[in-house]
Design a protein around this nucleic acid. Structure first.
Lengths: 148, 148
DNA sequence: GTACGTGCAAAAATTTTGCTTTAAT
DNA sequence: ATTAAAGCAAAATTTTTGCACGTAC
């Protein structure tokens, strides 16, 4: 589907591979493609199942290793979710997550007002801040009606 | 040490126990005490080790079951941490977490400016929002000097 | 006395590791 | 040709579950 986001990440992976002596394997390529196409913050196992359809020899441990590699390279990051399996996000643009306590769905949202306020004066006390993210919790639109 | 926070939570646990037919067991009491005293967002295993010192028959599965019960009751909640073991927080006052990518330490901070801005207009789209929390990531004061 | 909760042990689920083989450079 | 990375299987970790016994109410 020639996803522009995938193309961009692919270029970045190629560049990083050159710089750091990493190898551009089919597995990394397919996992990157799947991550760029996924809108649902997939777990390692979800990615494994999806990529396996077209690459049946893929193993789950490779997915884990690849995801950690991508995180280290800044091509993906782990979503600060609650319990369950680790969930990954390939969308690097500034956005935040709403987690439904009932169905565990993770919904993205943006929040301009948040991006614009200054960090608390504690920055010196905390150390170096690389990323800031909001996690909202509650019940999603589908689960609210079913609650008592 | 007659921690006022523990006393308050104990009262709440007693009240909820009465209301919901829960039993006020020694295990729940000691786990609640440990959680109220802990400042380090302990994992189930950390709580297990600490309480076991004075209650050697305690089992780890009871700690898990108790923590989930406390979360359901609103006496504690799981910290949106990254990977690793689940970490719990008994401090219910509005505060946020800084997670060090190097040593995994979780540091609390407050952020008045954040509390005061309005949620994005997407609330209707998301559903019911029960809790909002910021997760900052980076390197803590101890780990910054050791980074390249 | 009556369940609810605990302890124990075993299982399930998730993630990591050692080692051999494959393949990218 | 070199050597990072993949695949496989097994282990390690973390969390959950079934069941018999204990205990708060």
């Amino acid at each position: 589907m020639n996803d522009p986001d995938f193309e961009c990440k692919l270029d970045r992976l190629k560049q990083l591979s050159l710089e750091q002596g990493l190898r551009l394997t089919h597995q990394r390529l397919e996992i990157l493609r799947e991550l760029a196409a996924a809108m649902d913050h997939p777990s390692a196992e979800m990615i494994y199942k999806r990529v396996r359809v077209r690459m049946p020899t893929l193993s789950l441990d490779t997915v884990y290793r690849t995801l950690w590699t991508f995180e280290r390279l800044g091509l993906a990051f782990r979503v600060p979710a609650l319990g369950e399996q680790g969930r990954f996000d390939g969308d690097l643009s500034p956005h935040h997550h709403f987690v439904c306590d009932a169905c565990s769905e993770i919904i993205d949202f943006t929040w301009d007002a948040f991006e614009n306020i200054a960090l608390p004066g504690t920055e010196a006390a905390l150390g170096r801040i690389d990323r800031k993210q909001v996690v909202l919790r509650g019940l999603c639109g589908k689960c609210v009606p079913q609650a008592a």
